[in-house]
Design a protein around this nucleic acid. Sequence first.
DNA 1: AGCACGCCGACT
DNA 2: GTCGGCGTGCTC
Length: 730
Amino acid sequence: MNSIANVVIEVSLDKEFDYSIPKKLQSLIKIGSQVYVPFHGRELRGFVVGLKKESSYVKELKQIKEVIGDRPFIPNNIIKLAYWIADYYCAPIENAVKAVLPSVIRKKGIAHRKKLLATLVSHEKKGLSEIQKKIVDLLKKDQEMLISEIKDKIKCSDSPIRTLQKKNILKLEYKEIRRDPFISSNLIPTKPFALMEEQKNALDSICKQIDKKTSSAVLLNGVTGSGKTEVYLQAIKYSLQRSQGAIVLVPEIALTPQTVQRFKARFGEIVAVLHSNLSDGERHDEWHRIHNKSATIVVGARSALFAPIDNVGLIIVDEEHEPTYKQEESPRYHARDVAVMRGKIENCCVVLGSATPSLETCFNVQEGRYYNTELSQRVDNRKMPHIRIINMALEAEKIGHPTLFSRELVDGIYERISKKEQVILFLNRRGFSSSLMCEKCGYVSECTECSITKSYHKSDNKLVCHICGSEEDFPSRCPNCGNPNYKYGGSGTEKIEEILEKLFPNFRIARMDSDSMRRKDSYQKILDAFRLGKTDILIGTQMIAKGLDFPNVTLVGVLNADISIHVPDFRAGERTYQLLTQVAGRAGRGDIPGEVIIQTYNPKHPAIKAASKLDEDIYSINDLIFRKKMMYPPYSHLILVTLKGPNESIVVKCIESFYNELVHVLPSSVKVVRPLPAAITKVKGVYRYQIMLCDEQTVKMTKPIKYLLDNVRFPKEIKVIVDVDALSLS
DNA sequence: AGCACGCCGACT
DNA sequence: GTCGGCGTGCTC
């Protein structure tokens, strides 16, 4: 008999507490139950996250006071999902439960949540201390205030406030916090559009999977503008007709409000939206609309995955390759994979949509685990843009010195602008600071062990691999061609703008990057001006690649594709391909086919080659899977174990012993990259050190890691982070 | 977050 | 000595 409950309490203490379960509540308390428990002289709400027979707490346990509701607040399937997350991503169960809990319940300042409110009842100031006078003055202005606010403003503890209460100068009472009303915008309802042949086929195979009522995953591999959203909408309609609900995940909802609008316009009131920009009140309303079944479709970011929809018929992950689906705090889950898992638990169909499917998804399709559907035609019958790759090494040879603008690009810009069309110039600045490239031949030093770009360390003039720490002296000449100009690759947007203004003094040029992004209105102004044709050329970084539609742009120039190839990250190649595809999608309009000019020193790199085929309608999975070469050679699963600590020696010592234990318990197929002391990094006074593991299966690595985490005692100042399917290794 | 304890200064 | 304000630590 489990007579002890593991409870996470509403206050954010980042800790769970044991309580004994009284006999009469024994049958009512389940994992996921919401309970009232005595806590340091108060009574608080909490969630039961586990049941057990014994507690390690030395003092006597208190009893659970009462259970709220006749059924657990978190549905059973979601609890199952939380356990899977904790297990797969090596996270403590309480973290996993916190992640799946509706934030409405956890977060401060929401309705139902009571807080201490101070109200002034007397203006008497005689015989008060300095602090107390300040508090009374503060309250004179506002009459009532949360004590947490007072504490914040006066920088005092709550003691003086309580003293004032005793003196009857102010009143303290618990008060429910009012929430903001939810404002829903007026939308014109839409009807299903007629589908094209390919869309029909895709919809058919999705519907077939929905019919089966078993779990399945379908990749919807569709080029930009091929009408994936309409397929989603009609698949959802099908699911609704069978009285099943649907979950739609979108990356960074703030950037794609149009997508959300389309769902609302089609299905109206039954669509609930969950994302981080909602106020707590709005989130609360939306969550309860789902819980009480007045909303059966949920559109949202990562966390929408855990919406308490009873009968899920369909889960859609839009833009499944997007890195925002990876959670960066514990539990470090990947929403795409959790979506597939929820599909397994709910026995429903999961649709993964993308124009540039992630490597993992391609792999799963190839292995036969996911079905594949393709949309190769654009809905408006627009042609795919024409892609040209310019070899900058040859260009430099031709004119005798390295250059930022090839002849082709300059001519192309001139031609397009002369015809009153518009041009976007794309520049990736990421990785700019650390990687070095030969200006003549494009050579970049790679780590032979880890196959990622080495970073330049100025202090000791060395090239260092950030993963394993191996290093070499910085070569004064390019090891490949002997050119003495071996230095930082790429220029910033400002410099590009400067050169461009000299090249085309009569064209109107605008620049958009994180500097101009800082002021939100100026960002909007730049975009509006460009859209209205008041600007001819727009120079920008990543941010102009996503979701924006400029109908008159016919030429897109990628100035230096090499920068993103050489970001010291295993995903660099894949990312480059995805980025180039997105950028290419901005080119062309109904009557004029788009043109894309990609400047690079590496025309043979797989990412560039894959991008160069965009206009040839070659679209099979086998074509895509060759991109596997872009990643760490034969492995598709990565785990990073990071140790953080206050000083270098203790971190090094711990990682050494952890490494020695690891190689003992890991199966031999797992590749372990042994870190050298040079791989240690210091961020804000915290020393960080990583071990990387690679294999074709995650479980072969997680089991031994979990075993070690349970059995190896780390000093308490050492923090261990296990990141499964780590995306960013830079 | 907020309750209770114990320290310390002011006043009997 | 005693009362009461205030910071601090701890809460199953």
